[in-house]
Every structure is written in structure tokens, then in C-alpha cells.
């Protein structure tokens, strides 16, 4: 990448680790998959441009994640840092891939741009919704490398 599109983004604090509750340690209580859990899965994805996580850049916020555990639906809105960000598709794809790998197969996953935050919002949403295109991009080894890097570097920084 020759130049950074957004040179000095605002950086926000990370949310605290989810506190352990007694129920979570109790074998007999069922913990349903909730918004916080899904948010925890994706908040550490790295921004392709900066050494920062999507959470720190407020690309992802817990309030923009909705989960319906019974019906098996997950809906994530993400907000690009600037309206003409060319990385938006890549970010969306990374979120999608991470969720596909980390959530049980019974979930239907939708990833969309927060309405009104990107200049070519509809086009990108359409790309991310298109199963064929997502599947095709997963076959593209170069693209997968970039996505894997976004997903994996977080592991080292932990």
C-alpha cells in the first residue's frame, strides 16, 4: 500500500474483558449466544491499514450487533472510518469470514455497512450478501492471505 487513506484516525479505548459470572462456571446453566459474545469474536480483527483493532477505531461497536439465538440469526453493522474508504469490502469480508468460522453452522450471518456511512454503501452490501461472490473470494488465495492476516495478527497481540 503506497499511502494511508486516513492518516490520523481517532483511537478509542477497548472495552473491558467480559467478566466471568458464576452462571458461566455452572455446568447446568445454559449460556445463550448473545451480542457481547459475537462482538468479542470480531472486535479483535485488525484494521488492514493500521496496527489497531476494529474496535479501537470504532468500526465495530457492540450496539451495532444483533443476535437472535433461537432463530439462528446474526446481524452486524460496521462503520468505515471515512466515507470513501476503499478497504470497506475487505473489512466486511474479514468480519464475515471470522464469523463463518467461529459461529455454529446453524447461524445465518449478515454483515452490512452502517446506513449512511459510506459513499458506495449499497454496492458493498450487495457484494457481502452475495454467497457466490463470498465463496469465490474464499477460493482466491491472495485475498485469503490478506483476510487471514487481519484475523490472525490479533492472536499474537493478545
Amino acid at each position: 500500500m503506497a499511502e494511508l487513506e486516513n492518516i490520523n484516525p481517532s483511537v478509542y479505548k477497548k472495552t473491558e474483558e467480559r467478566p466471568l459470572t458464576e452462571n458461566e462456571l455452572n455446568e447446568d446453566v445454559v449460556d445463550p449466544i448473545d451480542e457481547r459474545e459475537v462482538f468479542d469474536l470480531i472486535r479483535d480483527i485488525n484494521d488492514p491499514e493500521h496496527p489497531l483493532t476494529l474496535e479501537e477505531l470504532h468500526v465495530l461497536e457492540q450496539s451495532r450487533v444483533t443476535v437472535n439465538n433461537e432463530r439462528g440469526e446474526v446481524f452486524v453493522n460496521f462503520t468505515p472510518t471515512i466515507p470513501h474508504c476503499s478497504m470497506a469490502t475487505l473489512i466486511g469480508l474479514s468480519i464475515r469470514v471470522k464469523l463463518l468460522r467461529a459461529l455454529p453452522p446453524r447461524f445465518k450471518i449478515s454483515v452490512e455497512i452502517t446506513p449512511g456511512t459510506h459513499s458506495s454503501e449499497n454496492a458493498i452490501n450487495k457484494q457481502l450478501k452475495d454467497k457466490e461472490r463470498v465463496a469465490a473470494s474464499l477460493e482466491n488465495s491472495h485475498l485469503m492471505q490478506v483476510v487471514n492476516e487481519c484475523i490472525s495478527i490479533t492472536k499474537q497481540s493478545q
Binding site: E24, L25, E27, V30, D31, I33, E37, D40, L41, K98, R101, A102, L103, P104, R106, I151, S152, K155
Partner: peptide
């Protein structure tokens, strides 16, 4: 285990599966 009824198991399973 990704669909385990305990969250902590799910977390561990996610890390393992990602790895």
C-alpha cells in the same frame, strides 16, 4: 463444541478452530 451450551467452552473451541 462451537455450539456448546457453555460460553467458556465455545470460546476455547473458537480459538482452537481458528488456529
Amino acid at each position: 463444541p462451537l455450539d456448546d451450551h457453555k460460553r467458556l467452552v465455545r470460546n476455547a473451541a473458537v480459538s482452537a478452530r481458528m488456529a
